[in-house]
Amino acid sequence: MFGFIVQRLLATIPVLGMVAVFVFLMLRLTPGDPAAVLAGDNGTPDQIAQIRESLGLNEPLLVQLGIWLGNILQGDFGQSYFFKKDVSELILLRVEPTLALATTTLILTIVVAVPIGVLAAYRHGTWIDRSVMAFSVAGFSVPVFVLGYILIYLFAMEIDLFPVQGYKPISDGFWPFIHRLVLPSITLSVIYIALIARITRASVLEVLGEDYIRTAYAKGLKPNTVLLKHALRNAAVPIVTVIGIGIALLIGGVVVTESVYNIPGLGRLTVDAVLGRDYPTIQAIIIVFSFVYVVINLLIDLSYSLLDPRIRY
């Protein structure tokens, strides 16, 4: 087990290294010039050249890459071209809203999706099952931004239940913080609820056909006990896998949702950085995200051995 964790953590180093090089080259090879963006619409060619010189963009590509990687190893992600701040400071400022949105979304997803999935499997073929499946199809089909605007229209404009947009940090009080997160969380979680409810249903349905479920009934257990204690635990591995993939995908959804609801998180920062050709910021965000991916995957793999005693590393 310990050996496995060490092995996996060591494996993140080449992964992050490759991501770093790939992202660096991708950004340099796509058209667009940060110096031109910074100089603004009225920038003269001289000004642009000067900015380019000051940012070190005139150095050969490999030299730039070397300098950047060397700085990262010392914990320095560089300075944002656009915000004129240390990138690490910039990211730290933006982490809280994203983390908050991701957490509430995740909780909402699990709390809703797993029970309705189990219920659909238990009531397989009935109207409950069909409603859950219909919701799933609908949930998959509606784009995040459409759903976002519909919810804003209904619950913020027609009925004045929630604010239209914006974010309040948790230091301003718990209630205002949650109040502003309700609509974004629902918007973001619908597709994951659809996905995870489906997986839960399929997985539980399969387990319900197993012999040990019959054994459990033969012991005189109540259906609820059979379902929660015997079926769900055995169905958990695929469900947890998809929840883990869901967390990874969530980061993509966050970008759109944060834009719709005007939340100053990492998603918005990403959009702004891309539009401004802010190379250091984009590179740092992607490295942070890929590190999060790797850690989440490791946690999922470790959770398997908690859920299923047959899996040992």
Partner: peptide
């Protein structure tokens, strides 16, 4: 009543001991 009887007054063993026990308990 059936649940009371099962496991207490009548019980059953099955063909496949490999699959008839819950692997996670």
């Amino acid at each position: 009543r059936l649940r009371e009887l099962r496991g207490a007054r009548m019980s059953m063993i099955f063909q496949e001991p490999m699959t008839a026990l819950n692997p996670t308990m």
